Computed example of a mutant assay.
Amino acid sequence: MNEKKIITSPFHDDTIKSLKAGEMVYLSGVVYTGRDAAHKRMCESLKAGMPMPFDFQGAAIYYAGPCPPKPGKPIGSVGPTTSGRMDLYAPALMDKGLKIMIGKGLRDTEVKNSIVKHGGIYFAAIGGAAALMGKCVESAEVIAYEDLGTEAVRRLVVKELPVIVAIDSMGNDMYTEGRKQYAVD
Rank of each mutant, 00 (worst) to 15 (best):
A90N: 11
G58V: 08
S28Q: 08
L27K: 10
R85N: 11
P66Y: 07
E160K: 13
L106C: 06
G134D: 02
A38C: 10
D55R: 09
V158G: 10
F54H: 09
D55H: 10
P51T: 05
T81V: 02
R155L: 00
V184C: 09
H39K: 09
A124Q: 03
K117L: 11
K112N: 11
P66D: 01
V158I: 15
K96H: 15
C136P: 00
K17L: 11
A140G: 01
V111G: 10
G103W: 04
F123R: 13
L106Y: 14
Y26A: 03
Y63I: 07
F11N: 02
G22I: 12
A144K: 04
M94Q: 11
E3A: 14
G65H: 06
A60P: 00
M86Y: 06
I100N: 05
P91N: 13
Y32A: 03
G178I: 07
V153Y: 09
E138N: 06
T8F: 05
G72Q: 08
P10K: 12
Y62L: 04
P10L: 09
P51Y: 04
K40G: 01
D185W: 10
Y175K: 01
K20E: 07
Y122M: 08
E3P: 02
V116I: 13
C43Y: 01
Y89D: 02
S139P: 00
V165R: 03
R41P: 00
C43S: 06
M101V: 11
L148H: 00
R155N: 00
I115V: 14
D87G: 05
R179I: 11
Y89V: 05
A60G: 15
L98V: 06
V157Y: 04
L106W: 12
G128L: 09
E23S: 09
I121P: 06
K4V: 11
A152W: 08
C43G: 00
C67F: 07
R35M: 04
G49K: 01
M174L: 13
G72P: 06
